[in-house]
Simulated assay, not measured.
Amino acid sequence: MSATSAPQTLSTGAHPDPARADVGLTFVSTWSTGSPERQRATLIAIARAWESRPWPHPGLLSYNVYAGSDGSTVLHFSQWRDEESYQEFFAQAGNGRDARNGDIDAAVPGIERLGLNKTRLYRSWTGGAGERREPGAIVIVQVDFDAPDTGRARAWADGVLAALNSDPAEKGGLLSAHFHISADGSRVVNYAEWESEEAHVDALAAAGAGIGSPTPEWREVREFPGVVHDDAVARYRFAYGFLPR
């Protein structure tokens, strides 16, 4: 794809739709910047690096960036049409990836890349809501298993969905939950949309009620075999979204 034929990059303030039907592959990654000041500088550098260049590939459907409530981390959430599109982009000379990262690293040296999750959306929970509402906070929950097993990862997600659907308690501000399974089946990444960060904090603090209350369904989730790490929870606010113009 030549630079002259490439669409331009559009910056948008709208959250992505995690359940977008034409998405076949989702990447979720995290950077650590070290301080609130460096976090802000990193977000500005990312925006400049993307807005100043054409859209990198038609198979990339959206690219989104979030600021961690810890004042240090930056979350990246990108949606691709399929594996083939991503591989074509990655193999394409002059795709702009190194140039964008070079500009960002020049502006904020020492950013630590903490890891990249290559996932596919498995199932979503929206609580039977009609029109989609814009969230005030995004919560990422990462669950790891003791061995790669896509079937087991799906069963765990099914259990959480069953618990959400059976729990009569108020969900305390949870708008949606989207369960992404890693390519090797060793991890589930839940992209959850909440009304606000405070709503999520309150839900965690509400012992015995709401999300995770001691119902049989939630007990099965907590006692699910093979889970080795289920406490990786991080809150983010949406910063920038990028789309092809």
Rank of each mutant, 00 (worst) to 15 (best):
R100C: 03
R100S: 08
R100A: 06
G102C: 08
G102I: 11
D103T: 14
D105T: 15
A106Q: 06
G110L: 06
G110I: 08
G110E: 13
I111R: 09
I111E: 02
L114T: 13
L114K: 15
N117C: 01
Y122H: 12
Y122A: 03
Y122K: 04
Y122Q: 06
S124G: 05
G128S: 08
G130A: 14
E131D: 12
E131R: 12
R133D: 05
G136W: 01
A137L: 13
Q142H: 13
V143M: 01
D144F: 11
D146N: 10
D146E: 10
D149Y: 13
D149A: 11
T150P: 03
G151M: 09
A153L: 05
A155Q: 15
W156C: 06
D158R: 14
G159C: 07
G159M: 11
V160C: 09
L164C: 05
D167I: 02
P168L: 00
K171R: 13
L174H: 10
L175Y: 06
L175I: 11
H180R: 05
G185N: 03
S186T: 04
R187N: 11
V188C: 10
E195R: 12
S196N: 03
V201H: 14
G208T: 07
G208A: 09
A209E: 13
I211L: 15
G212S: 07
P214E: 08
T215L: 01
T215W: 02
T215H: 06
E217P: 07
W218L: 00
W218K: 05
R219I: 15
E220I: 07
V221F: 00
V221E: 02
E223L: 04
G226W: 05
